[in-house]
Amino acid sequence: METISFIVGLLYQYADTIALLALSAIGLIIIFGMMGVINMAHGEMMMIGAYITSFAHYAGIPTALAVILGGIGAGLAGMIIERLVIRRFYGQLLSSLVATWGLSLILSQGALLVFGQLIQSVPTPFGSFTVGELSYSYYRMFIFLVAMAMIAGLWALFRFTRFGVRARATMENPRMARALGVDTSRVYALTFGLGTMLGGFAGGLLALTSTIGPFYGMTYTPQAFITVVVGGGAEIVTGLLASVLSLGAIKTIFMNQTNILLGHVAMLVLAFVIIRLMPSGISDWVERRQVRVRER
């Protein structure tokens, strides 16, 4: 019984860590992979999703719908931002970093000025369950499943839809795609909208278990950033999965066996090692090996 409860505890924490990493990074990695743009304002997209979720919840809208509204709202905000700012920085990693960082400051400080230091938290649904002597939250397991479903959905979207084919073509070789009649600027706008929508949706989901304030997104931005850099932009789904599974595993083990600080440190050390060995991330490294195998 002791070992079972230990294993369940560890698995729960692993799933929980994976969910947090995946949810915070999923929108970011799409934008990075497709457009070579790192959106430092991604955390603020999550914040927008969380705010809309809280306002909608307290306006009497069912919670599930409130979270979806959060995603849609952030997606729309993202498309506006793409039109006004991002459009000018495609493929310019460093300039886009600075521009979106500025955007992040404007959005979070703007939220502080308009809505004050905090807004009401939304109660966590579903209650808890007990295994052995420890009790766990159903909702945290639910968001793990949702995160996995989102990754699967993303894979299906890029694999089976017309948008997916055009998006992959644009990613692979934008000039060629344009020559073949793909409206790449529309693809970019839609991808950015999709990325920010997923960010807003993730923000809404996480809002149900956390404090919501103007700097809500900033607690997720660093880990999202690390996850994306480790995953790389060559193949979004593989990169994201490989990244969250490896970073999540090391963080969980160290947190469980030592303490939170060493958990964070271990994750950063692993990220450092991975980036040292595979400078463009795991997915890029995998892709190059595949190409090499094919060429043989």
Binding site: S128, S137, T209, T211, T219
Partner: peptide, 15 residues
């Protein structure tokens, strides 16, 4: 702000 998250998370876990 970030550390206050302990409370809703512990409550959600019934802990």
């Amino acid at each position: 702000g970030a550390q206050y998250n302990y409370y809703p998370q512990a409550a959600a876990a019934g802990a």
